[in-house]
Structure formats: C-alpha cells, structure tokens
Design a protein around this nucleic acid. Structure first.
Length: 493
RNA sequence: CGGGGUGUAGCGUAGCCCGGUAUCGCGCCACAUUUGGGAUGUGGAGGUCGUAGGUUCGAAUCCUGCCACCCCGACCA
C-alpha cells in the first residue's frame, strides 16, 4: 500500500504518471513536451542500451554518429517519407541572437537567417542515405551495417512521459545491401533481435508481426514490428524494423557496381527502439505498490536493509552485510547496502518497493543470533527466512533472481493470453473491445477501407498481422468479405 | 490544433462565487525518545498565490492576454 500512489483499477493513466515521478524515473521539464530522465530512470535505460548494443554488435553492426540537423531539401527527396514526418518537424531558421533595442532581452537576429532551413532530425534516413551515396561504389562496399544512438525530435500534440515525448532517445539502425533478399533477411533478423530483447530482458512477451500498408513507416515497403499488451488492455508498439526497398537508394542515388558488371540501386533497412521501451517496462509489470523491474534490467538487484537499535548491533550487521555483498558481487549481482540512519526500516522497505528492487534482504539482531537473513521478493511480495549456513548466499540469490525474471514473464504472458480474444462477428468485436479490451484476433478482408472504417467506429487499429498466424479461410469481421487469416486489433498507445 | 479542466511553499490542498495581504496535511530543519512494514513529541524555517497587463484606496479573489500541465478528439515510436 504505497503512500500516495493511485490504484491502477481507479485511474490507470494517473497511476502511470505518478509512478514514473514517484519512482524517480523521469519528470516533466521546463520545455514543453520534453522530459528530464532522472538518474534512476536513466540507469535502467543504460542497462537496456548495453544489452541491445551487445546484440547489435553480435549481429555485425557498428555504431556511428550522424548530424542532429537535416537540410530541408533532403527531407523532400523521398516523397512518402516527407509526407509522413512534415507535420511534426522542428525547424531551425536562424543562427544568431542579439540584444533587443528596448532592453527586454535577446531576440532572434533577423539578419542571421539561414539560406536553407535545417530540420531537427525526426529520424535519420535522409541524412544517412545522402552519406551512403559516397560510401558505396561497388558490391565490395556492401553490406553497410550501421547503428546510431541518438536523440530525435517529433513535434507531437500530446505527450506522456516515456510513451510520447517531443524529444526522445533511441537507436536507429540503417543498413544497405546488394540484394533484396539480404535486406529482407536483415529486416527480419532485427525484428527478432528486438523480440528476443523484449522477452529475455524486459520479461515482456511480444507478438512478432507485420504492419498493414496504412500503418507502415513512411518510406518503407514493409514494416515488421513487435507489439506488446499493457495491463490496461491497450497495445504498445515496442519496436519496428523496416524494409526500405530501393526507395532511399533511388531518392539519394545510391548505386553500386555489381559482380556481374551492372549498376544497381542498393536495398535498405532501418530499425529502431526508443525510450518508449521504458514505458512498456513500467506498464507491463508494475503494481499498486510501485515499480516491478525484471532483475536483468534492475539497476540494483538486491538491497540490504539493517535493522538495529544500538550502535553495536549496527556494526555487527554491517559486518555481516559486507560479507554477503562481497559474495554477491563476486557472483555478478548488483547489491546496495542501505545503511542510512536517517530512515527507519519500514520506510526503506516501502521506498525500495516503489522503485522496484527485485530482492530485499533484511538483517536484524534476531538474524545474527539465528544465523539467518530475511529475503523478500518484490514481484510476489513474499518473504522467507534463509539460513546462511545451509547453502551459499550467492547461489540462493542468483536462482531467486532468475525465478523472478521467469515469473514476471509468465505472468505477463498469461495476462496476454487471457486478453487475446478470437472474435467472429461485428457485435462480438465491439463488445469485447469495449468490455474486455486487449487484443482481438479477427478476420479482415485486407482492404485499407475496412481498416479505416473500423478505426473510425471503434478507435481500434490493426496492430499487426502476426507472422506465425495460420492460414485460415474466413470472412471479414466487419465487411463479411473473404479473408485468409486473422489479424490483431487493439486500442493502442 | 478543437472541446473541457487545473495552476496557491518541494508535494497535495483550503480560500476565489461575495476583494482587505494565505489554511491544513505531508515533506524539510533542530533536539529528544525511537528503529523486524512508511515513528512520536516539542520547537522552527519556507509563499513574486503560473505569468504579463488591467480595474480598484486595496487583487490569490474581478477582467484580458500569454504560458504550462491534465482529460477527450485529430496525430504518433
């Protein structure tokens, strides 16, 4: 029962916003739509980055860095790309300020107008493909496998901490290949990397799928995605991987001399995940007591809290705590000793629960006497006495951390299974969407008109066409026209 | 950007209708007693009432502009 944290059942979005702030993850800044990611929140992001970066490198990618600014003319080179992003671009028009003549402060110097405006990147395809033109001449230069960790700006109307902010942090991979087949394989590979990261590290089950044509990335021929389900029954797109065809190669004239002696356009992909994953992580597992973090991404995996009256007791406990910490650290467990004497144990318990620390060890005089410690799990809120002599503490803690990781994953997976409903009629579609929410698995006739109509009527969108769906003859849940398989509908973030 | 709402100490609030210099709780500081689930007592500090104007002898209160945030739409990773 966290003090002051609203309950999920009463107001889910208020719960989310308060949790983000109370758990010290992020807060709104003085700049509209932009957040300050606080040290604790950033620590989690750093752990995500570290794992993803490792996975990217294992699949052959290297990091590079491209400019924050994109010349306006670049953006218009790929027609559907500019159409998709034009409405949300921040534009730099001047390069100098000067003192106002009336002494009221600084103003933009009208004489310092840029000849060509610069766009603050909403994504980097254009500036990167303009660079790739110079990097690629021959098939020997391919493939280009590059990733960038960066910030981007999209001028959104409504923002929410982590889920949608004007500026956000992300990674964007941009690759160029000699063949269509290879680029398609890359697109699929990176979607699978994201899915594996979500499932193994975030403990977040995701549906691997394909976007419909209307939901596709602006400038892509095909968009693969991972979709997750949040506790309020709404879907969240957690990552996308795009097959760009030759669209950007043609827009930026990136050609290569093939082995056969021809001159061909290269094939491209791009793929990204953002700080939005933080939102997914928070919403997927947390409860009314606060954050629940998967051990693999928790900045602190174990916190040790001393319980004492007298100085001598504290000293004895500290000695024991130091032994335990040394052993845990040797085993690669991150552990913090909360030896603040400014707060009582109960306060510390609540605080570390709020912040989602997976395991808590309490040591008091009673434990010293009995040779025990108390271990409490954040995910289940259960406690147990552990005898220090019976087995090595590091083995016990490591296996508990693994168990927590597995438990919260299967809990989320069960939730998603329960919240995925096969619907076969339009009435059923509407009532499930309104009363139960979650994913609706339904037949769709494959047309953009029907997709649009359903969105207008219900606010539900096609989240994806699952890659593992079975071929199944059926009729569209809305139009009654023939369908070859089910797609996933949901209301989404 | 359209509709609705809210801005008062670090946080949450009362006061606003009916104008007279701001209430309470949490938190903060000091001391004492406390410490196995958010301690208690005593004393204390902290406020340009979002912001800029206007009306008035006098504005948190009335009027206007602006800004920010929240909810609902449109947009979206």
């Amino acid at each position: 029962m966290s003090k002051g944290l609203p309950k999920r059942s009463e107001d889910y979005s208020l719960w989310y916003n308060e949790l983000v702030k109370k758990a010290d993850l992020a807060e709104n800044s003085a700049v509209r739509g932009c957040m300050v990611i606080k040290p604790y929140g950033y620590s989690i992001w750093e752990k995500m980055q570290a794992e993803l970066d490792r996975m990217f490198k294992e699949t052959g990618h290297l990091n590079a860095y491209f400019p924050l600014f994109i010349p306006k003319s670049f953006l218009s080179k790929e027609a559907s790309h500019v159409e998709g992003f034009a409405k949300e671009c921040a534009v730099v028009t001047h390069y100098r300020l000067k003192n106002a003549e009336d002494g009221s402060g600084v103003i933009v110097d009208p004489e310092a107008k840029l000849d060509e405006e610069l766009i603050v990147r909403p994504t980097s395809e254009t500036v990167i493909w303009s660079t790739y033109k110079n990097w690629v001449q021959s098939y020997r230069d391919l493939p280009l496998l590059v990733n960038q960790w960066a910030n981007v700006v999209r001028w959104e109307m409504r923002t929410r901490l982590f889920l949608r902010t004007t500026e956000f942090l992300w990674q964007e991979g941009h690759t160029a290949h000699a063949t269509k087949k290879e680029a398609e394989a890359e697109t699929l590979q990176m979607m699978n990397v994201y899915a594996q990261f979500a499932e193994d590290f975030m403990a977040l089950p995701v549906v691997r799928g394909r976007k419909t044509e209307t939901e596709r990335f602006a400038g892509a021929d095909d968009t693969l995605c991972i979709e997750a389900l949040m506790q309020d029954g709404k879907a969240l797109q957690a990552g996308t991987s795009h097959f760009l065809g030759q669209n950007f190669a043609k827009a930026f004239d990136v050609k290569f001399a093939s082995k056969e002696g021809g001159l061909e356009y290269v094939w491209g992909t791009s793929w990204g995940v953002s700080t939005r994953l933080m939102g997914a992580l928070i919403m997927a597992h947390s409860d009314d007591n606060g954050l629940v973090l998967p051990p693999k991404l928790a900045p602190i995996q174990v916190v040790i809290i001393p319980i004492y009256r007298k100085e001598e007791e504290f000293d004895a406990i500290t000695e024991k705590a130091n032994e335990i910490m040394a052993e845990l650290r040797k085993a690669g467990v991150s552990v913090k000793y909360d030896n603040r004497d400014t707060h009582k144990p109960g306060f510390k318990f609540a605080e570390h629960e709020l912040k989602g620390v997976p395991l808590r060890i309490a040591i008091g005089p009673r434990d010293l006497e009995n040779g025990t410690i108390e271990i409490a799990r954040r995910d289940t809120l259960t406690k147990e006495q552990f005898e220090l002599v019976s087995q090595p503490i590091s083995g016990k803690i490591s296996s508990m951390l693994e168990e927590i990781q597995a438990t919260i994953y299967s809990k989320a997976l069960n939730f998603r299974s329960e919240m995925t409903t096969e619907v076969n009629s339009w009435d059923e579609f509407k009532s499930v969407l309104e009363e139960k929410t979650g994913f609706l698995s339904a037949h769709w006739d494959g047309t953009a008109e029907t997709e649009e109509k359903i969105k207008d009527l219900t606010k539900a969108t096609i989240r994806c066409i699952p890659l593992d769906r079975k071929e199944e003859e059926g009729v569209c849940v809305y139009s009654g026209k023939p369908s070859k398989g089910r797609v996933l509908f949901a209301k989404a973030y």
